[in-house]
């Protein structure tokens, strides 16, 4: 049975990975006409052109152009973008270190190239601010403040790919479908072997014994706490819970899947509802004791005890039903 389970795992993951490859192996860009791909490949990343500049070269929007018109536009825009990308790199290289560290050649370049750019930027900012002030107080007060949109290689590609009518072939569905069949085969095998395993596995039996043992421990300890709480100091209650109850709660929770495998989901839900309520009320007992509210601690531990006892009763009920089968 373990061999079949192993095969199921292999099929599931092979199918999953193969289907994921099918989902990611192509891009919308692949479905553009060859001429457009060649045109767009001339554009470089890392630079853009403003909408108004673009309008100077083409009255139509990028989406409205034919493939041939796009080629013409790209031929015009490509050198502009290339120069801007180069300038950006050059600017970064010269401004990334303190002026004092520049070599004499770099200093000359800084004066001739960087300073005019900085001046231009500063001027543009001043103009923007002046426009904003005029907009706030002057006759243009109601005019919305707008910024120009810019277009780089990414925007060009996005505009053109948005024209592709059917993008679904971007995923290779035949490859994807076959891979999914492989994966589903794996799931079926896993499910089948899992059902057989549930009744046979020694691990389930071991987990189930942890569940019963930890629940019995909890019944004893919480019962003891409930019986003696009135005689205990707040700190003793906190310490008792920390020292004796945390481990059995954790052990039960870690082994709880044995309940699903032995009794099914409905019984699991019923038992876990009581178990979790018992744990939550013991946590409340801890908080109330730590804060010194011993009446509340007493009420809470009584409630916790009731839930844990009920969890034990449910476990007995479902175990006797299970044995009767």
């Amino acid at each position: 049975m373990n061999g079949l389970r192993f095969v199921g795992q292999i099929l599931l993951w092979l199918g999953f990975l193969s289907a994921a490859l099918a989902a990611c192996s192509q891009k919308e860009y692949d479905f553009l006409p060859d001429l457009e791909k060649v045109s767009l490949s001339k554009l470089v990343d890392g630079a853009s052109i403003s909408a108004s500049e673009l309008q100077q070269h083409s009255a139509a929007t990028i989406e409205e152009l034919s493939s041939e018109e796009l080629e013409t536009l790209c031929n015009v825009v490509a050198p502009i973008l290339a120069k801007r990308a180069d300038d950006a790199k050059r600017f970064g290289r010269l401004t990334n270190k303190p002026v004092a560290d520049l070599t004499p050649e770099e200093l000359d370049e800084y004066v001739s190239f960087v300073i005019p750019v900085l001046k231009e930027q500063s001027l543009a900012r001043a103009v923007d601010e002046a426009k904003q002030k005029a907009g706030t107080f002057g006759e243009n007060a109601e005019e919305p403040k707008k910024s120009a949109k810019s277009f780089g290689k990414k925007e060009f590609i996005s505009k053109r790919t948005s024209l592709i009518e059917n993008k679904w072939p971007t995923v290779n569905w035949l490859w994807y479908g076959l891979s999914m069949i492989l994966g589903i085969g794996g799931v079926v095998l896993l499910r089948k072997t899992s059902k057989s395993k549930e009744t046979e596995s020694s691990r389930v039996a071991e987990e189930f014994s942890i569940v019963t043992r930890s629940l019995t421990d909890l019944q004893l300890r919480i019962g003891e706490l409930a019986a003696n709480l009135e005689k205990l100091a707040p700190q003793d209650v906190v310490e008792f819970i920390d020292e004796t109850c945390v481990d059995p709660f954790t052990d039960f929770a870690d082994a709880r899947n044995a309940l699903i495998q032995r009794y099914g989901l409905r019984a699991f839900a019923e038992i876990m509802t009581q178990f979790a309520s018992g744990e939550r009320f013991l946590n409340r007992t801890w908080s109330a004791a730590a804060d010194g509210y011993m009446n509340e601690a007493m009420d809470s531990v009584t409630r916790s005890n009731a839930h844990i006892i009920r969890a034990g009763e449910l476990l007995e009920k479902y175990e006797s039903e299970h044995q009767a089968k």
Partner: peptide
């Protein structure tokens, strides 16, 4: 990219039913 969402949804379902 609805096609990519759809393909991903299939992958998610596959794993969800794996147990």
């Amino acid at each position: 990219p609805s096609y990519r969402y759809a393909a991903g949804a299939g992958l998610g379902l596959l794993l969800a039913f794996s147990g």
